[in-house]
Design a protein around this nucleic acid. Structure first.
Length: 380
RNA sequence: GGAGAGGUACCCAAGUCGGCCAAAGGGGGCAGACUGUAAAUCUGCUGGCAUUGCCUUCGCUGGUUCAAAUCCAGCCCUCUCCA
């Protein structure tokens, strides 16, 4: 068995689930947030620090690792886990997101996708079979099927084609998947069209994957539409299998996603905004580059217990950013990952204690206040 | 003392045979964006005030002109070379 998922508790009042996902590289307490390490590194954070942060699984990217350093190098260095010195879990994305994000550099056809490398301009042809081979070699604990992730908005007819293609590719990925200890997740597409989501979910469930991802959300649509789709999918996906909402990582969306039955999340948000000076705090986002923090001796977040907040002032971190010092980004990245890890920890505790509904109400009020609008920190 | 080069906005630096110049570009500064990472990236603002517009500004002072950062005169200052 590649992975096992134990559903420990269902929230009696909401769709929230407490679970435990076991892979060949440890277990993951769910709902969980997984930091993104696209190129075999969570940018700026060592694997020792990831462990410190309580990270149990990260997301890496097949397409990027295939381009550089190349799967042969990863294989020769002992596989992705050993290469990056990470003993926890790894999910590899298939490259499906690059079908979306590298819009100008790729051509999608039924058989596969032609990419123009953003690194050197070379041409690469990825099919479901090749993507599976890449992930098999990388040796991630969970592989993802190749999917077509369309942008928002997308006309119905085109979305329908993307759903059908994603289903066909999922079947091909399943057939091409060789590595037994590696699980393969299907990815539900369909944008914000309810019937297409139902169709996509039904077709994938039919294929009996060990877990299901929800893709094609948080690509520009209003959050309410995303939540509607999650609500729709909750009863359609098998309860005994993990659900993974791809690409979602704002605090409010993690809370809402958890309420709607999501077990796994990943997102570049905490690390990316951190490198650009924005930190998540108990009182909303704070841009540490802002002049008001020039002489501020408070920590990033007064309610935070992370080592960054215990040891460094806003004034210092702002100085590091203004001076272009690499430590600034490392500190904010660490803090943001800690912030989300704590949020998920609280969510799990609440479910475990049968107090999620109450917790949700209180936390939602707080997050709406601080993160609901434009994301401005209300204390600023 | 002689010869030459130059002083432009917070800094550096274009522009100088007159108008299209509140003045290129870069830096710095200020703010914003970022959600399965082409991202330590990208965008906007950066003389003042107000709605198009007006006002003050290119070392200083004066002059020529309808019009001057640009032309003329004097002065102040900086740098290089020669004595």
């Amino acid at each position: 068995m590649s992975i096992s998922f134990e559903l420990i508790r269902n929230c009696p009042e909401t769709g929230a689930r407490l679970g435990k996902l076991a892979t060949g590289h440890g277990t993951v307490d769910t709902p969980a947030f997984m930091p993104v390490g696209t190129q075999g590194t969570v940018k700026g954070i060592s694997t020792g620090e990831l462990t410190e942060l309580g990270t149990e699984m990260i997301l890496a990217n097949s397409y990027h690792l295939y381009l550089r350093p190349g799967v042969e190098i990863v294989a020769r260095t002992g596989g992705l886990h050993r290469m990056m010195n990470w003993s926890g879990g790894i999910i590899t994305d298939s490259g499906g997101f690059q079908v979306f994000s590298l819009g100008g550099l790729r051509k999608v056809e039924d058989d596969g996708v032609t990419f123009t490398s953003h690194i050197d301009g070379s041409t690469h042809y990825l099919t479901p079979e090749r993507v599976m081979r890449i992930q098999n070699i990388l040796g991630s604990d969970i592989a993802m099927v190749l999917d077509q992730c369309p942008p928002y908005p997308m006309p119905y007819a085109e979305m329908q084609l993307a759903v059908e293609r994603t289903t066909r590719w999922a079947a091909r990925c399943r057939d091409a998947h060789l590595r037994e200890e590696q699980a393969l997740f299907g990815i539900v597409q369909g944008g914000v069209y309810r019937d297409l989501r139902e169709q996509s979910a039904a077709e994938l469930v039919e294929m009996d994957f060990p877990g299901y991802a929800i893709g094609g959300l948080s690509v520009g649509e209003p959050k309410e539409l995303m939540y509607d789709i999650l609500d729709l999918l909750d009863p359609l996906l098998p309860a005994e299998k993990p659900r993974y909402l791809m690409g979602v990582g704002s605090p409010d969306a993690l809370l809402e996603g958890s309420r709607l039955g999501v077990d796994l999340f990943d997102c570049v948000l905490p690390t990316r905004i951190a490198r650009n000076g924005r930190v998540m705090t108990s009182r909303g986002y704070l841009n540490i580059r802002n002049a008001v923090y020039a002489a501020d001796t408070a920590p990033l977040d007064e309610e935070c217990g992370c080592p960054v907040c215990a040891n460094y002032t806003r004034a210092y971190i702002r100085h590091l950013f203004n001076a272009g010092e690499i430590l600034g980004m490392r500190l904010t990245s660490y803090h943001n990952l800690y912030f989300l890890a704590q949020l998920m920890l609280k969510i799990r505790e609440a479910i475990r204690e049968n107090g999620f509904a109450l917790f949700y109400g209180q936390m939602k009020k707080k997050l709406d206040q601080y993160y609901g609008g434009a994301g401005k920190c209300k204390s600023c």
